[in-house]
């Protein structure tokens, strides 16, 4: 018994018996009665009647079970010693910042503002490239804007090429909303991800990721949105994506990363953590 208070979760006195709610059949009777009420609807009314009667009994019985006082029964407490211990005594740690015993990833991050600025700057770059494309190919800077608007507002694709090149307030608003939200989100993603990329963050985030993304859209869009697909020039599409990636990435890494603080409140820590790992010390082939 002495080991108990030292190794258990509470130092309280161990009682001799514990009161628990008494067992009872009334909930069962009520449930059966209610089911019979419903069964009567698919068989004969007498079954419902019987069910109603049983339910009444069940409800009254249950009521008396809890009122005026809940019925209890006491259970004797078993004599036992519960020792909480482990054979895995060693704790290994991932060696990244040795001075920190427990560390939360990542150690350094870019401030949130960097992601927002990066996203906005990238959005301007992307829009510029796209508008140049529209000007060269259709003679109108509104052409790509209208196409983007058509992603949501599908009726726009029924329009002729000439109409698509004209300015449209509705499509401009739709396209602007889409473009800005997506750019902001991707910018924030860049702000978070760039410190984690192993090497050449600008190459990976600015060129390779947009290439992958373009490839994905290229392979899927024909299935998902064939009308839109027919109107897209993939070289220019990729160019605008890369423009976004490069500008957003460059803006982000111009900010100084800040060290993640260890003991700030939960919400601010964003909750990404990696505590140490216990090293195994397996005893004699014990294999669990």
């Amino acid at each position: 018994m002495s080991a108990y208070s030292e190794t258990n979760l509470s130092s309280g006195e161990r009682p001799r018996e514990i009161v628990l709610p008494a067992r009872t059949a009334w909930p069962l009777v009520l449930a059966f009665g209610l089911t019979l009420v419903f069964t009567g609807l698919v068989t004969i009314a007498a079954v419902s009647l019987l069910g109603g009667l049983l339910s009444l009994f069940g409800a009254v019985g249950w009521f008396r079970e809890v009122l005026p006082h809940e019925r209890h029964e006491s259970v004797p407490v078993r004599e036992e010693v519960i020792v909480i211990a482990t054979e895995r005594r060693e704790v290994a740690r991932i060696q990244i910042a040795p001075e920190l015993q427990r560390l939360r990833f990542p150690i350094e991050v870019y401030p949130v503002a960097s992601g927002i600025r990066g996203g906005l700057a990238g959005s301007v770059a992307m829009a510029a490239v796209a508008m140049i494309y529209g000007w060269i190919s259709q003679g109108s800077i509104w052409y790509p804007v209208n196409l983007l608007g058509a992603v949501v507002y599908a009726d726009a694709l029924q329009l002729t090429a000439a109409r698509l090149a004209q300015f449209s307030m509705l499509l401009l608003l739709v396209a602007l909303t889409l473009h800005l939200t997506t750019s902001l989100l991707v910018g924030l993603l860049y702000g978070t991800m760039l410190p984690m990329l192993p090497r050449h963050p600008i190459l990976l985030g600015g060129v390779i990721a947009p290439l992958f993304w373009s490839g994905l859209v290229y392979s899927v869009l024909g299935l998902v949105h064939p009308l839109l697909n027919a109107r897209i020039n993939w070289w220019w599409f990729t160019a605008s994506q890369i423009a976004f990636g490069l500008v957003a990435g460059l803006v982000v890494i111009r900010h100084t990363p800040v060290r993640v603080r260890q003991f700030v409140p939960l919400a601010m820590r964003a909750g990404i953590e990696a505590t140490g790992m216990p090293e195994e010390k397996r005893d004699k082939g014990e294999n669990r």
């Binding site: 258990n8 979760l9 509470s10 309280g12 006195e13 161990r14 009682p15 514990i18 628990l20 259970v75 407490v77 078993r78 036992e80 519960i82 909480i84």
Partner: peptide, 15 residues
């Protein structure tokens, strides 16, 4: 931390 299988009362002393 309860025994296997746990007793009806789960924990003799609430943790």
């Amino acid at each position: 931390s309860a025994s296997s299988p746990p007793p009806a009362y789960n924990f003799a002393v609430l943790p």
